[in-house]
């Protein structure tokens, strides 16, 4: 499966970062990052806390522009275009804290995610004809992430795990070409992690996945290529097996060297 996903390597990357940096005052949260993601890639970004992973995500998704470098998305320079344009181009993301819409129902949340990449956001009439397909898609997406019994529930009543599922449902329903997940397994129980991993492995092959994950088991099972970040820079890239064996990675995560393993 990993090999199959790698097969599209001749194609132009759908995401290309050149020398991307982001400063916050004196802090270089992201510093000179070059990154190429090809269609169908399953890329995990690893790194200790404060490595700049989430900042990198925010820059790619358009939360704020980078202070250096350029970002090409699907062959277009999007360095300074707002997040909503990138969403419409086919980029969907989740957040470290599940940012779901607490005052609306599960179905409304997914409905809004489906509507967001279409036109008619300000349509001021109720139209069954317009809405029925989107509503059906929303319920279908709820079912795919295991929330079929909760479609009518208010999101504020959902558990942490259910909100994570909802986040992924919202990302999927937009049928993105590039899905960016920021620590999807954080705070999940062991069983929920297994479900999540299966959910991610079941994604269509042409969906490109960019994943920040602290849970090595999830990350290394889902990913076919791993980028390791530290202090805002990319320090190692490689296959999960290479990363597992890499000394620097062990040093960063465990804080000391394991000579003679």
């Amino acid at each position: 499966m990993a090999v199959a996903a790698q097969s599209a390597e001749s194609a132009e990357p759908i995401l290309r970062l050149r020398g991307v940096g982001r400063r916050f005052g004196g802090l270089r949260a992201v510093d000179g990052v070059d990154l190429q993601i090809r269609r169908g890639d399953r890329r995990a970004i690893l790194g200790p806390n404060g490595a700049g992973k989430t900042t990198l995500f925010n820059v790619i998704a358009g939360e704020f522009p980078p202070t250096d470098g350029t970002i090409d998305l699907f062959g277009t320079d999007v360095t300074h275009s707002p997040a909503r344009h990138r969403a419409k181009m086919g980029l969907a993301r989740t957040y470290q804290q599940s940012r779901v819409l607490l005052g609306l129902s599960v179905e409304d949340n997914i409905y809004l995610a489906a509507l967001g990449v279409r036109t008619g956001h300000t349509f001021p009439f109720r139209s069954r004809k317009r809405d029925a397909p989107l509503r059906a898609r929303a319920r279908e997406a709820a079912r795919e992430v295991g929330l079929e019994r909760r479609v009518g529930a208010m999101v504020s009543e959902l558990s942490h795990g259910e909100r994570r599922q909802l986040s992924i449902g919202m990302a999927r329903v937009a049928q993105p070409q590039l899905m960016m997940l920021d620590e999807p397994a954080a705070g999940l129980s062991r069983a929920e992690r297994v479900t999540l991993t299966e959910l991610l492995l079941a994604l269509p092959e042409d969906v490109t996945l960019l994943l920040i994950e602290h849970d090595m088991d999830v990350a290394l099972r889902v990913a076919n290529w791993v980028t390791m970040m530290h202090d805002g820079r990319v320090i190692v890239e490689g296959t999960p097996a290479e990363i597992r064996a890499n000394e620097t990675v062990h040093e960063l995560y465990l804080g000391k060297r394991h000579y003679g393993d």
Partner: peptide, 13 residues
């Protein structure tokens, strides 16, 4: 109302 930033990343102006 619930999360303007989230809505922006979903594609809303």
């Amino acid at each position: 109302r619930d999360d303007p930033g989230r809505m922006s990343s979903l594609g809303y102006h």
